[in-house]
Simulated assay, not measured.
Amino acid sequence: MDIEELLNPVAEDENISNTSDEEIFESVQMRRQAEEMMEINGGDDGGDEGQVMEKPTRKAALTAVTTLADYIADINDPFVRKLEAVLAQFGRQTRLDVTRSMEPSYITDYFASQ
């Protein structure tokens, strides 16, 4: 394979020859609009996917933390020690947030009043 083939692959030539100037222009305009929307929306380019990723559950996040902690447990590096501390703090903070969001209940709530 020579340099010319590396710089100008045959597959790209076929794509370009089948694309009109109008299609290229529309494609560039769509990309430009997406970049403008990204600035307005703070990072969401409003792409063609149309799918919004759901936020992981607390259980899934804590499972990921446990997996990471297990993976880095035998690595002896200062960065890893800091990561372990951050992961532990995340776990504690997550449990604290759940505790704070609970509604208090009393034993008398479970008995019918007369």
Rank of each mutant, 00 (worst) to 15 (best):
M38H: 01
Y110Q: 02
P9V: 09
A61H: 06
V10S: 11
T66Q: 14
F90R: 02
M1H: 15
M53H: 08
E14D: 07
D74V: 03
A60Q: 15
Q33L: 09
P104E: 01
T19I: 04
A88V: 04
Y106I: 04
D48Q: 05
T63M: 08
I3V: 11
T67V: 12
R81I: 08
F90I: 05
E39M: 03
E14I: 14
T66I: 04
T66V: 06
N41S: 09
L62F: 00
E36K: 07
K55D: 13
E26T: 04
M38W: 00
E36W: 00
E84P: 00
L6K: 15
Y71C: 06
D97N: 10
M102Q: 15
D74F: 06
G43M: 06
D74I: 02
T19G: 05
E54M: 14
S113R: 04
A64Q: 10
R58K: 10
D2M: 03
A60D: 11
I75D: 11
A61V: 08
A61I: 08
I24R: 10
T99N: 08
I16T: 07
I107C: 03
T57P: 06
S17L: 01
Q93E: 15
L96T: 11
R100S: 04
F79H: 07
L68R: 03
P9R: 05
L6Y: 14
D2I: 10
K59R: 08
A112Y: 06
M102S: 12
